[in-house]
């Protein structure tokens, strides 16, 4: 279980870290100053979650790796995030739809983690994160509604974003040996168990946004086992450049 647990926490931490890195790319490029601030806020929250989770993952692993060792000295094949969060930002519509799809999942996952009593350290991190992601979820849902029910152009654009991103959502609900072990240990229900509520909530948002829920059953997956899109390696090259150029330096 110890191995699986460390692996499981890495997945949570990498989801948060990779999405934070993507959102931080928006800095100075937002559609309005207020939204620049909001996206940085969300990125900061996610980065805080990532730091806590990676620190815990490193402790559980027991090899002396801290948050920075895990963030800066793993290759893309060793990252465990879902593909959805590593996709390039695209336009604001792509970013906000990705955020909504992820936030709705993150809330459910943190709710479950915060209420279990098997792993109290993880529960404490989840309880703090839950407050944050609930706010993120409200923010992204509100924007999806505004864009979907805004102008003709915004409706068209955001529907395209949704169609493009939808095939990446099924990966969130996949289970494997790691998630099954976590479920048996009582830390977290199976990912599949979140599907119904997630679908219900996302459909409600899309309906209010006057958007059509894609029918696609395509399944783009691989992140949890380290098979990523072409984009992640570039992201990491940028993120890791200083640590890799000056190994052993303190910053």
């Amino acid at each position: 279980m110890a191995d699986q647990e460390h692996e499981w926490i890495l997945r949570l931490g990498d989801d948060a870290l990779v999405l934070a890195q993507r959102l931080s790319e928006w800095c100075s490029h937002g559609p309005a100053l207020e939204e620049d601030i909001a996206l940085s806020n969300i990125a900061l929250d996610l980065l805080g979650q990532a730091r806590a989770l990676l620190t815990l993952a490193g402790q559980r692993e027991g090899l002396g790796r801290d948050e920075d060792a895990l963030a800066y000295f793993r290759t893309d094949r060793e990252f465990r995030n879902a593909l959805l969060v590593e996709l390039p930002n695209g336009d604001f519509g792509d970013t906000i739809v990705r955020q909504m799809l992820f936030d709705q999942f993150a809330v459910l996952r943190y709710e479950a983690l915060a209420s279990q009593t098997v792993d109290l350290e993880l529960a404490a991190i989840a309880a703090k994160a839950l407050k944050e992601v609930r706010y993120h979820a409200a923010h992204s849902a509100q924007w999806v509604v505004r864009l979907g029910d805004g102008t003709e152009e915004s409706h068209r654009r955001v529907q395209e974003s949704l169609n493009m991103l939808w095939p990446y959502t099924a990966e969130l609900f996949e289970d494997d040996a790691v998630s099954k072990a976590c479920n048996e240990a009582g830390v977290l229900p199976l990912n599949a168990s979140f599907t119904a509520r997630w679908t219900e909530q996302v459909r409600a948002i899309l309906e209010e946004a006057t958007l059509t829920c894609p029918e696609s059953t395509a399944l783009l997956t691989g992140g949890r086992s380290g098979r990523h899109t072409e984009h992640l390696s570039y992201m990491l090259a940028e993120m890791q450049v200083l640590q890799r150029t000056y190994p052993g330096a303190e910053w």
Partner: peptide, 11 residues
């Protein structure tokens, strides 16, 4: 960001 601001205003 123009289309986003327009959408927010229209909404």
């Amino acid at each position: 960001g123009a289309w986003v601001r327009d959408a927010a205003a229209a909404y």
